[in-house]
Amino acid sequence: MPVVGGRARRAGLAGVLLLCGCLAGCESIPEEAYRLPPSSQGVREAQTRTFEVPAEANILQASVALMQDMDYNFDTIEYPLGVLSGSKTVDADSIARNAGLVAADIALVILAVIGGQVPGGSLYAQADDEIKLTVTMVVLPSLENEGQYTARITIRSELVDKSDHVKKVVMIEDPVVYQEIFEKLSKSLFLEGVQ
């Protein structure tokens, strides 16, 4: 009799575990998923710059060239809305080895951000991991002043393991990264011959 009782308890426990497991599989939307973070206004300012150029084509061409300078491939270009999206995948391990190469500076900052969020501050990326960077640029005529154009850049960084599982996702908010990109955009305008 005690043996049957033990089996019954085990079967009941298995049922509860199965129920828990299945319910855990039914994900619900994270509460703050569509909520603006408190820092959004400051981040938006860091991500935005205004440029004064003779024509819209100048800033768009310079932006396209900038994305190419930074080794991004275009995923989407929606001209009338000024949307340019590009992405690239970098080897998490080679970034550390190749520090100083084109665009590695940005990726290093991103890697540092990812590493910094791990308890103990250890570098989270493994040798086989990759970092997928996605940049969205929106370049539009300024609503405030004629002849001026605003560019806003947002960057997402995903740390992906060799099985293509996303380990971590970070939106880059460091103003230094955006400062550097806007400096490169200014230089791109100069190289395009825009005064």
Binding site: Y34, Q47, T76, E78, L81, V83, V138
Partner: peptide, 20 residues
């Protein structure tokens, strides 16, 4: 539409397609 694009950027979205 400009405001919608900005909102999606604020919320960390990447724009996949857009048609004015």
């Amino acid at each position: 539409m400009r405001s919608v694009v900005a909102t999606l950027q604020d919320l960390g979205f990447t724009i996949d397609t857009a048609d004015p």
